[in-house]
Design a protein around this nucleic acid. Sequence first.
DNA 1: ATACTTGTAATAGTTGAAATAGTACATATA
DNA 2: TATATGTACTATTTCAACTATTACAAGTAT
Lengths: 131, 131
Amino acid sequence: MQIRIDNASDRPVYQQIIDHVKRDIALGRIIKNEKLPTVRQLAGQIAINPNTIAKAYRQLEQQGIIVTKAGAGAFVANLDSNLSRSVRKKLISEELERIAVDAYHMQIESQTLLEWFNSAVAKFNLPSGKE
Amino acid sequence: MQIRIDNASDRPVYQQIIDHVKRDIALGRIIKNEKLPTVRQLAGQIAINPNTIAKAYRQLEQQGIIVTKAGAGAFVANLDSNLSRSVRKKLISEELERIAVDAYHMQIESQTLLEWFNSAVAKFNLPSGKE
DNA sequence: ATACTTGTAATAGTTGAAATAGTACATATA
DNA sequence: TATATGTACTATTTCAACTATTACAAGTAT
C-alpha cells in the first residue's frame, strides 16, 4: 500500500490514512482478510510517528473496517455496517446537501452535478439492490 | 437569521456559521443585496466572541458569497464564482468520491444513494442548463 | 459637523487536538 | 524461546480555534 500525505491539506494525517485505507478497500485494491502494512512499516514508509498510524488503525477498527490482532497484524474486515439505516441516511444526506450548497454557489448545472455524481459512484462497486 | 451552534460537532463554530449562511442563500431564505445581521448582533445572539463572526464573514467575502462595507454592514453578493470549471469539478468530485466510499462501507445500494442525492439537490435551485 | 454604527485590525491569553518521542507490555508467530 | 505486532501510557511540542479587549476607518443618520 502506497500512501502519500499532503502536509498542505487541512485534513489531519491520521484522517488521510483512514481515507486512503477506506478508499483502497472500496476500490477493491485490498480485499477481505488481506493483511495491511504493520504500524511500524507504515510509520517508517511515510516517515511519521507510529502513534499516528496506531490512531488511524484504532479508528478504522472502531468503524468495523479492519480487524487487528496484537502479534499478528491488521486485516481487512467483513463488510458489516453497525449503523442503523436512519443514521446512515442522516450522515450521507448531510454531506450531500453540503455539496449541493457548494454547487449552487459555483453555479453548477443540475445535469452536470448529476454526471459528476455518477462518475464518482461508478468507481466503486456499490450493491445494486437486485442481488 | 437564526443560527444554532452545535458545540458537540467537530466542525468549528466559524465554519458552522459559514455553512449556515451559504445554505440560507442557496435555499433562497436570504436574497441578493439583503443585509446580514451585524457582527455584534450575531455575536450577542449566539453568545460567542465577535471575532469568530468576523472570521466567518471575512471568509465568506473571500469566497465571493457576501460583500462587506465598514460602517454599512454585510450584504449578499451576486452569484459569480471565480473558480475555473476544472477546479470546481475537482473540488466537488473529491467530496462526491468520499461520500461514495462511505456509502460502500455502509453497504448502501446505488439506487438508494441516487435517491438521497436527488432529494438533497432538489432542495436548492440549481441552474437547469436549458435557460 | 456630529454622533453613532459597522467592519476591520491588532494584541494577548486559554483551550484542546494533532503529532512527536520514548518506553513498556501482551499476544501471535516461527 | 525469540521475534514481530498491536496496544497503552506519559510527556512534550505545535497550532488552530476561541475568547477578551482595545482601537480605528468607513459608512449612516441627525
